[in-house]
């Protein structure tokens, strides 16, 4: 059995998929180096990332299959699921066979695997558009720490750049030490290493207090329903919520 190993980047994964066609090989697994463990069952093939090759695959997905498929592939990739590389590979192989209609094959396991994981990723993106909390820190910068399950910080950037276009902000994925910085004109993804405490702006505590008070008073006491609250708003997201701390 054969296993392809790429460097963990999206370009790396697409390069690996390019190589399977170029070398006419059918690896059983495509793994990111971060998930790789030596196993004597597999013959390991390490792939060197090559932007030219990954571009070719990227364009081929777009033109020969569809933009929707491209989005699915990227969302599956940021899920950082150990199997996502393999799933994407199998999904795309079917895609190049059936073309534009790939995402209609809703009963095919290869399509299903991708749709299931991308549904989870999209759901988290949508959750975070609502549950992210900015704190105003000194110099009028709005800072939002969070720990998403998937690597979605880049997928949130354009939403907040459109919405909070007149303020400087930072969205910080604390788990992965990366973040998006925005300066009222453009945003960049970068590594973030915060040391020391953050100083809040003067009025920050006041608004946090107001928000907590609002949150407390808007609930109808005769209808208290913690189970419903938790099923709508998973507890894993509570850590950074002002109103829940």
């Amino acid at each position: 059995m054969m296993c392809y190993i790429y460097d963990g980047s999206f370009e790396g994964l697409l390069t690996a998929i390019y190589e399977t066609y170029y070398r006419k090989e059918h690896p059983n697994k495509i793994l990111s180096i971060t998930d790789y463990e030596k196993s004597f069952l597999y013959k390991d093939v390490f792939i060197d990332t090559d932007p030219n090759k990954s571009d070719k695959v990227y364009n081929s997905i777009k033109t020969k299959i569809s933009n929707q498929t491209l989005k699915h592939v990227f969302h599956a990739f940021v899920s950082e699921n150990e199997d996502s590389g393999t799933w994407i590979y199998n999904y795309l192989r079917l895609g190049w066979k059936v073309g534009k209609k790939l995402d209609l094959h809703l009963t095919d396991d290869r399509v299903l695997a991708i749709h299931n994981i991308t549904r989870k990723v999209s759901r988290e993106i949508h959750y975070m558009q609502g549950l992210l909390r900015f704190r105003k820190i000194k110099n009028d910068v709005f800072y939002a720490p969070f720990e998403p399950q998937f690597n979605i910080v880049g997928l949130l950037a354009s939403h907040f750049a459109n919405r909070m276009s007149d303020q400087n902000w930072i969205i910080h994925d604390v788990k992965r030490d990366i973040g998006v910085l925005y300066n009222q004109e453009e945003w960049v993804i970068t590594n973030i290493n915060l040391k020391g405490d953050i100083t809040f702006a003067e009025d920050e505590e006041f608004y946090q207090k107001l928000w907590k008070e609002y949150f407390k008073n808007i609930a109808i006491k005769n209808r208290i329903n913690p189970k419903l609250q938790k099923s709508n708003m998973p507890m894993k997201y509570w850590k950074y919520l002002i109103e829940k701390n």
Binding site: H126, Q129, G130, L131, N162, R163, M164, S165, D166, Q167, F215, K216, I218, A219, I220, K221, R223, I224, N225, P226, K227, L228, Q229, S231, N232, M233, L241, E243
Partner: peptide, 24 residues
Amino acid sequence: KNKKGGLGNSHISGICHSWSDDGR
């Protein structure tokens, strides 16, 4: 849509920002 230098826009399917203790 947001305007240049403005604050805010709306999302066609709406966004929930929290869920109160009654689950709404």
